[in-house]
Amino acid sequence: MAFEIPDDLHPDARPLAWLLGTWHGSGRGEYPTIEAFSYEQDVAIAHDGRPFLHYFSQTWITGDDGERLRPGALETGFLRPAGDPPEGEGTAVELVLAHATGYAEIWYGVVDGPRLTLATDIIARTETAKEYTAGQRMYGLVEGHLMYAYDMAAEGQPMQSHLWGKLARA
């Protein structure tokens, strides 16, 4: 499926254009404090002509046969260009995310071609949310698929792999 950059995409958002669209796929998750799991995921990344992208992700925990067992994580936010990064390569970006599990995060990073890397700057959590202190995300466009990995430090554990997935443009 060919992808075209929309004519009305804000010029500042052009470095992020490769993320636009609806994506569907699956992934795996693990962490020392939980049982390993598989999930199905839908991601929608859209724009309205202003200098940001809207991001929405919904997941479902799946069984060994791929059948949906129950709803999983849900997050939404805004990805915005933030000028030039210190090292001078790519474009600096910021991501503001909110989660149904009681977190709000601010991430900073760099988009360089079809690769986006981000790290948390601020994590705010509600009184009922689990302890979570830091995260790192990497997204890349590989042979037409959106691949990603998410590492985190939480529940007294050091930074380590938590989620990874592969999504196709729907």
Rank of each mutant, 00 (worst) to 15 (best):
T33R: 10
L9T: 10
A36W: 06
R14K: 15
R137E: 07
E4V: 11
T101W: 06
E143Y: 05
A36T: 11
G165M: 09
P86I: 08
H99R: 08
G25Y: 04
L163C: 03
T91H: 09
Y108Q: 11
D8P: 06
A82E: 07
E89H: 11
A168C: 07
M147I: 12
Y55C: 07
E155W: 06
A129W: 04
A170E: 13
I123A: 06
G77R: 03
W23I: 04
I123S: 05
L16W: 01
L167K: 00
M152C: 10
Q160M: 13
G113Q: 06
T133C: 02
P158G: 03
G140T: 10
P32H: 06
M152Y: 05
A2K: 11
W164Q: 14
Q160E: 11
S161L: 14
P114T: 13
G77K: 02
T76L: 09
G140Q: 14
A170M: 08
F3G: 10
T91F: 01
W60G: 00
A124T: 12
T117K: 05
A13Y: 02
I34V: 15
D7C: 04
R14Y: 03
E94Y: 04
I34W: 06
A44V: 15
P85N: 09
E4S: 15
T133H: 02
T133K: 01
G29A: 11
A2N: 13
L69Q: 14
I122H: 08
P85H: 11
D8M: 06
P6Y: 08
F78G: 02
Q58Y: 08
G135N: 06
R80V: 11
I45M: 05
G102A: 04
R125V: 02
T101N: 11
W60L: 05
Q157P: 01
W107P: 00
P158L: 03
E35Y: 04
I5G: 04
M138W: 00
W107T: 00
D7P: 09
D48F: 09
M159P: 01
A170C: 07
F37P: 01
Y108H: 13
F78I: 14
R137M: 05
A153R: 00
R80E: 14
A134W: 05
A73Q: 10
E105N: 04
F37M: 11
G102Q: 02
E67D: 13
G140V: 05
K166A: 12
R50E: 12
Q160G: 15
L163S: 04
D8Q: 09
G90T: 10
M1G: 14
Q157G: 00
L141D: 09
E89K: 10
Y108D: 08
T117V: 15
K166S: 15
D48N: 15
T128I: 06
G109H: 00
D64G: 07
T22D: 15
A92Y: 05
